[in-house]
Protein backbone atom coordinates (compact mmCIF):
# COMPACT_ATOMS: atom_id res chain seq x y z
CA UNK A 1 0.00 0.00 0.00
CA UNK A 2 2.75 2.36 1.04
CA UNK A 3 4.72 1.36 -2.02
CA UNK A 4 1.74 2.08 -4.23
CA UNK A 5 1.28 5.47 -2.62
CA UNK A 6 4.94 6.31 -3.08
CA UNK A 7 4.75 5.24 -6.68
CA UNK A 8 1.71 7.31 -7.48
CA UNK A 9 3.23 10.28 -5.64
CA UNK A 10 6.42 10.03 -7.67
CA UNK A 11 4.32 9.68 -10.81
CA UNK A 12 2.51 12.88 -9.86
CA UNK A 13 5.74 14.75 -9.27
CA UNK A 14 7.09 13.44 -12.53
CA UNK A 15 3.95 14.50 -14.38
CA UNK A 16 4.22 17.90 -12.71
CA UNK A 17 7.69 18.50 -14.07
CA UNK A 18 6.75 17.11 -17.45
CA UNK A 19 3.88 19.50 -18.01
CA UNK A 20 5.44 22.56 -16.49
CA UNK A 21 4.47 24.65 -19.51
CA UNK A 22 1.86 27.25 -18.60
CA UNK A 23 -1.60 26.62 -19.98
CA UNK A 24 -4.44 29.01 -20.59
CA UNK A 25 -7.36 28.02 -18.35
CA UNK A 26 -5.03 26.66 -15.67
CA UNK A 27 -3.69 28.38 -12.58
CA UNK A 28 -0.88 30.77 -13.55
CA UNK A 29 2.53 29.80 -12.12
CA UNK A 30 3.12 31.39 -8.71
CA UNK A 31 5.99 33.84 -8.31
CA UNK A 32 7.62 35.96 -5.68
CA UNK A 33 9.80 38.76 -7.06
CA UNK A 34 11.33 41.95 -5.78
CA UNK A 35 10.56 45.23 -7.50
CA UNK A 36 12.73 48.28 -8.17
CA UNK A 37 11.73 49.77 -4.79
CA UNK A 38 12.85 46.65 -2.93
CA UNK A 39 9.32 45.51 -2.27
CA UNK A 40 8.43 41.89 -2.90
CA UNK A 41 5.33 40.81 -4.79
CA UNK A 42 3.73 37.44 -5.22
CA UNK A 43 0.90 36.48 -7.50
CA UNK A 44 -1.23 35.57 -4.48
CA UNK A 45 -1.10 39.22 -3.32
CA UNK A 46 -3.22 40.20 -6.30
CA UNK A 47 -6.14 37.83 -5.83
CA UNK A 48 -9.30 39.63 -6.94
CA UNK A 49 -7.43 41.72 -9.49
CA UNK A 50 -6.54 41.15 -13.08
CA UNK A 51 -2.77 40.87 -13.47
CA UNK A 52 -0.79 41.82 -16.57
CA UNK A 53 2.75 40.52 -16.93
CA UNK A 54 4.94 42.28 -19.48
CA UNK A 55 8.41 40.90 -20.10
CA UNK A 56 10.76 43.65 -21.18
CA UNK A 57 14.29 44.56 -22.18
CA UNK A 58 14.66 48.29 -22.77
CA UNK A 59 17.32 47.95 -25.50
CA UNK A 60 15.43 45.39 -27.54
CA UNK A 61 14.21 47.05 -30.76
CA UNK A 62 10.84 45.29 -30.49
CA UNK A 63 10.38 46.77 -27.03
CA UNK A 64 11.55 50.16 -28.31
CA UNK A 65 8.91 49.84 -31.06
CA UNK A 66 6.11 49.47 -28.54
CA UNK A 67 7.55 52.02 -26.09
CA UNK A 68 7.19 54.60 -28.84
CA UNK A 69 3.79 55.20 -27.24
CA UNK A 70 1.78 52.01 -27.66
CA UNK A 71 2.86 50.35 -24.40
CA UNK A 72 2.45 53.55 -22.39
CA UNK A 73 -0.99 53.99 -23.97
CA UNK A 74 -2.01 50.47 -22.92
CA UNK A 75 -0.69 51.01 -19.39
CA UNK A 76 -2.78 54.20 -19.10
CA UNK A 77 -5.85 52.71 -20.75
CA UNK A 78 -5.90 49.73 -18.41
CA UNK A 79 -4.40 51.58 -15.45
CA UNK A 80 -7.47 51.20 -13.27
CA UNK A 81 -7.74 49.84 -9.76
CA UNK A 82 -8.85 46.48 -11.17
CA UNK A 83 -5.69 45.87 -13.15
CA UNK A 84 -2.17 45.33 -11.81
CA UNK A 85 0.47 45.86 -14.48
CA UNK A 86 3.79 44.21 -13.69
CA UNK A 87 6.79 44.73 -15.95
CA UNK A 88 9.28 41.85 -15.58
CA UNK A 89 12.97 41.87 -16.44
CA UNK A 90 14.46 38.37 -16.66
CA UNK A 91 17.89 39.36 -18.02
CA UNK A 92 20.51 37.67 -15.86
CA UNK A 93 23.17 39.87 -14.18
CA UNK A 94 25.88 40.60 -16.73
CA UNK A 95 23.55 39.85 -19.63
CA UNK A 96 22.17 42.40 -22.02
CA UNK A 97 19.06 44.14 -20.70
CA UNK A 98 19.94 43.66 -17.03
CA UNK A 99 19.54 46.96 -15.16
CA UNK A 100 19.90 48.29 -11.63
CA UNK A 101 16.74 49.26 -9.70
CA UNK A 102 17.69 52.93 -10.09
CA UNK A 103 18.10 52.54 -13.84
CA UNK A 104 14.75 50.75 -14.03
CA UNK A 105 13.02 53.63 -12.26
CA UNK A 106 14.78 56.11 -14.49
CA UNK A 107 13.60 54.20 -17.57
CA UNK A 108 10.05 54.23 -16.25
CA UNK A 109 10.02 57.98 -15.72
CA UNK A 110 11.95 58.88 -18.88
CA UNK A 111 9.60 56.80 -20.98
CA UNK A 112 6.47 58.03 -19.18
CA UNK A 113 5.60 54.46 -18.39
CA UNK A 114 3.09 53.68 -15.63
CA UNK A 115 3.44 50.06 -14.57
CA UNK A 116 2.42 49.25 -11.00
CA UNK A 117 5.85 47.73 -10.46
CA UNK A 118 9.00 46.67 -12.31
CA UNK A 119 10.03 43.21 -11.10
CA UNK A 120 13.46 41.59 -11.29
CA UNK A 121 13.72 37.91 -12.17
CA UNK A 122 17.51 37.58 -12.19
CA UNK A 123 17.44 33.80 -11.74
CA UNK A 124 15.00 33.44 -14.63
CA UNK A 125 12.88 31.02 -12.59
CA UNK A 126 9.67 32.97 -13.12
CA UNK A 127 10.35 33.62 -16.81
CA UNK A 128 10.98 29.93 -17.41
CA UNK A 129 7.91 28.94 -15.40
CA UNK A 130 5.83 31.12 -17.73
CA UNK A 131 7.82 29.89 -20.76
CA UNK A 132 8.48 33.53 -21.55
CA UNK A 133 10.64 33.64 -24.67
CA UNK A 134 10.74 37.12 -26.05
CA UNK A 135 10.59 40.77 -25.19
CA UNK A 136 7.94 41.96 -25.25
CA UNK A 137 5.90 38.96 -24.11
CA UNK A 138 2.47 39.48 -22.60
CA UNK A 139 0.33 37.52 -20.10
CA UNK A 140 -3.11 38.19 -18.65
CA UNK A 141 -4.12 36.47 -15.39
CA UNK A 142 -7.71 36.82 -14.19
CA UNK A 143 -9.03 37.64 -10.72
CA UNK A 144 -8.96 33.97 -9.75
CA UNK A 145 -5.31 33.58 -10.68
CA UNK A 146 -6.12 31.66 -13.87
CA UNK A 147 -3.96 32.32 -16.91
CA UNK A 148 -6.20 33.76 -19.64
CA UNK A 149 -3.82 35.01 -22.30
CA UNK A 150 -0.21 34.44 -23.30
CA UNK A 151 1.69 35.52 -26.35
CA UNK A 152 2.46 38.50 -28.51
CA UNK A 153 1.35 42.06 -28.00
CA UNK A 154 -0.10 42.17 -31.53
CA UNK A 155 -0.25 40.29 -34.81
CA UNK A 156 2.58 41.77 -36.90
CA UNK A 157 6.00 40.52 -35.85
CA UNK A 158 8.21 43.42 -36.86
CA UNK A 159 10.32 46.10 -35.26
CA UNK A 160 8.59 48.87 -37.24
CA UNK A 161 6.48 51.39 -35.38
CA UNK A 162 4.35 51.85 -38.50
CA UNK A 163 3.06 48.27 -38.20
CA UNK A 164 1.41 48.85 -34.81
CA UNK A 165 -1.60 50.59 -36.33
CA UNK A 166 -2.02 47.87 -38.96
CA UNK A 167 -1.80 44.96 -36.52
CA UNK A 168 -4.58 43.23 -34.63
CA UNK A 169 -3.97 44.17 -30.97
CA UNK A 170 -4.15 40.65 -29.53
CA UNK A 171 -3.09 41.61 -26.02
CA UNK A 172 -5.38 44.63 -25.74
CA UNK A 173 -8.33 42.60 -27.09
CA UNK A 174 -7.58 39.78 -24.68
CA UNK A 175 -7.35 42.07 -21.65
CA UNK A 176 -10.58 43.84 -22.64
CA UNK A 177 -12.34 40.48 -22.97
CA UNK A 178 -11.03 39.20 -19.63
CA UNK A 179 -12.09 42.39 -17.83
CA UNK A 180 -15.57 41.89 -19.30
CA UNK A 181 -15.56 38.35 -17.92
CA UNK A 182 -15.15 36.70 -21.33
CA UNK A 183 -12.45 34.31 -22.51
CA UNK A 184 -9.72 35.80 -24.69
CA UNK A 185 -9.92 34.90 -28.36
CA UNK A 186 -7.27 34.07 -29.43
CA UNK A 187 -5.94 33.14 -26.01
CA UNK A 188 -2.55 31.95 -27.26
CA UNK A 189 -0.58 33.80 -29.92
CA UNK A 190 2.93 33.88 -31.25
CA UNK A 191 5.21 35.93 -29.02
CA UNK A 192 7.69 37.92 -31.05
CA UNK A 193 10.73 39.98 -30.28
CA UNK A 194 14.25 39.54 -28.95
CA UNK A 195 15.06 36.43 -26.97
CA UNK A 196 15.05 36.87 -23.22
CA UNK A 197 18.65 36.93 -22.00
CA UNK A 198 18.36 34.33 -19.24
Amino acid sequence: MKLKFALSLSALVFAGTLFAAPQVGQAAPAFNLTDSKGQSHSLADFAGKTVVLEWTNHDCPFVVKHYSGNMQGLQKQFGTDDVVWLTVISSAPGKQGHVTPAKADELTSSRNATPDAVLFDETGVTGKAYDAKTTPHMYVIDQKGVLQYMGGIDSIPSAKVGDIAKATPYFSNALTAVLAGNPADPAVTKPYGCSIKY
Binding site: D59, P61, F62, Q96, A159, K160, C194
Partner: peptide, 14 residues
Protein backbone atom coordinates in the same frame (compact mmCIF):
# COMPACT_ATOMS: atom_id res chain seq x y z
CA UNK B 1 14.09 44.03 -47.44
CA UNK B 2 13.46 43.62 -43.72
CA UNK B 3 15.85 41.62 -41.63
CA UNK B 4 16.84 41.09 -38.07
CA UNK B 5 20.49 40.47 -37.33
CA UNK B 6 21.37 39.19 -33.88
CA UNK B 7 24.29 38.08 -31.81
CA UNK B 8 23.22 38.59 -28.26
CA UNK B 9 21.39 41.78 -29.06
CA UNK B 10 19.24 42.12 -32.12
CA UNK B 11 19.27 44.86 -34.67
CA UNK B 12 16.36 45.18 -37.06
CA UNK B 13 17.05 46.81 -40.41
CA UNK B 14 15.19 47.78 -43.49
Amino acid sequence: VDWLVCKEVCIPAE
